[in-house]
């Protein structure tokens, strides 16, 4: 029995969709679960693309940890201003209603529980909602944490956006982390190319909500070996 066979997973109520989610489809799927008028932080990399799929009617306000609320889209050509960048150090624009603040205030917005949602990438998520996304644990790796630990424990809801399986085929939803933790029991929802999952914190299990391009039974087999 492998460790993976201990994954507590409930797939009984999952909806099945015939097509897998491509990258844009996944970003759009995440965007749909962002509550109206939420204050939201989108992590560096793939989570940033969720912004392209938010409906202006949702009234979502984007936070970037380097000190801006109401962050705009990426800047182009003569809009580029070196003083105006996002957490990924990409130049952005300043829409009406934006505000600036220093780093301690910016992280008070997370750590003080004011931010509604953050969307993060991950190496692994455990059945208990533990998150690993900052360090591979490899002996020659140079660790870099940025704001990930603050976001993980501070945002009211933590969404993870990732592929369900690593390049070597191993599942990234696991019974318990094998990579160093970023935060414990902090992930609420996991959005992947093959399925959307909720973490049931009370029962310490993962619940498949929707399967994409496959069946719930197939995902159960691949995730638990059962």
């Amino acid at each position: 029995m492998t460790a993976q066979q201990g994954l507590p997973l409930d797939v009984s109520g999952a909806a099945e969709h015939p097509e897998p989610l491509d990258r844009a489809g996944l970003a759009a799927r995440v965007a749909r679960d962002v509550p109206a008028y939420a204050y939201v932080n989108l992590g560096i990399g793939q989570p940033t693309t969720v912004a392209d799929h938010l409906d202006p009617a949702q009234g979502v306000v984007l936070h970037t940890e380097n000190g801006m609320l109401g962050m705009g889209r990426a800047a182009h050509d003569d809009e580029v201003d070196p003083d105006l960048i996002n957490a990924g150090k990409v130049p952005v624009v300043e829409p009406p209603g934006a505000s600036y603040f220093h780093h301690a205030d910016s992280f008070a917005m997370m750590r003080g529980g004011h931010l509604d949602v953050c969307v993060l990438g991950a190496f692994q998520v455990s059945a208990a909602g533990d998150l690993a996304n900052w360090h591979t644990g490899a002996p020659d790796a140079i660790p870099a944490v940025g704001g990930a630990m603050d976001l993980a424990i501070g945002a009211k809801q933590v969404f993870v956006m990732m592929s369900l399986f690593a390049k070597d085929g191993s599942p990234k939803i696991v019974p318990s982390l094998t990579y160093p933790a970023t935060g414990l029991a902090c992930v609420d929802r996991v959005f992947t190319d093959l399925g959307v999952f909720a973490v049931d914190h009370e029962r310490g299990r993962v619940v498949l909500l929707e399967a994409y391009g496959t069946t719930a039974a197939d995902l159960a087999e691949r995730l638990t070996g059962a």
Partner: peptide
């Protein structure tokens, strides 16, 4: 030598 500090802890 490197001391990695979560960004919010660094500020705080």
């Amino acid at each position: 030598e490197l001391e990695v500090v979560p960004q919010g802890n660094l500020a705080e």
